[in-house]
Write a protein that binds this DNA or RNA. Structure first.
Lengths: 142, 142
DNA sequence: AATAATTGCTTGTACATACAAATATAAATG
DNA sequence: CATTTATATTTGTATGTACAAGCAATTATT
């Protein structure tokens, strides 16, 4: 009976999956010396040098204060720089930051391989896309 | 291109969904004065008075140290008691804890209603069950 | 029975994320 | 142009969860 509650509650199942995936991702990204989220943040900066902090937050679906803290750490590590433009904070990768691009990409591929091996490639990708659209539906309507 | 990375990465989509659902659940459980996880812990104790801390952890898929901390808080609130039996810690609800059963059940139903309204009842339930089995598959095979 | 190994719980510490309030800049309105 | 409002960021603080190391109690081995 309680098991039903747990399996049927999207709060619980989503959080559990999140914990499992986080552990797996931290494991795969460990060789880069970065948390998975920081790694993705860097990827976003590779794609668009000088991207604003706000836009980064929207991409990653993280709160402004969280962005401040994440970026702060990466600046301290010497991987990012920021310059202020009006009320925007524009973020770029340093040389040291750019040097990590290959490693990060490899980590991301290992991670993907690891879970698609367990779930099947098709199912893994479909699930991920599904979760993306579900989050949208849950968030964008009030 | 980056968007693809984000939509295709189960780490990201799972974590995003987890954040969305956590916020929704905290919102719905607020009237009970409990975090959603604490509320589910109490539900587990209602179902099996004197359940061991270990078994609770297995049900909720949380680490032992996390269980210690969660239970500790609920004991301080006067909702649970624990007694030691050998190396097990057996957990029961106090009268005050039992008095919350109705409220908690209502919160859980509102939460479920809230997301099934957005996703459809069938899809919401199926997704939850799916995430449950996916987590199992990702965890139980090494 | 005495020592070793296992099991369950706790404690210290750390990390990711968030909210609320504060700050700083820009835009809009009178 | 002065004042209000909106926007982007930062800071202080809080919460949930976990890991690693330690402690305590039980079980196994000799």
């Amino acid at each position: 009976m309680l098991n039903n509650y747990l399996q049927e509650c999207l709060y619980f199942t989503a959080n559990r999956l999140s914990r499992v995936m986080t552990k797996m991702a931290e494991d795969e990204f460990a060789v880069s010396g970065l948390s998975p989220t920081s790694a993705f943040l860097l990827m976003a900066v590779y794609e668009k040098d000088g991207i604003s902090q706000k836009e980064l937050g929207e991409l990653l679906h993280l709160q402004p204060s969280t962005m401040t803290r994440l970026i702060e750490k990466l600046i301290i590590k010497g991987l990012l720089t920021s310059r202020i433009d009006g009320r925007l904070s524009l973020i770029s990768a340093t040389e040291k930051g750019k040097a990590l691009e290959g490693t990060i990409h490899e980590c991301w591929m290992s991670l993907r391989k690891r879970y698609t091996t367990l779930l099947g490639e098709k199912e893994g990708d479909e699930l991920s896309l599904h979760l993306f659209t579900v989050s949208d539906r849950l968030e964008n309507k009030e």
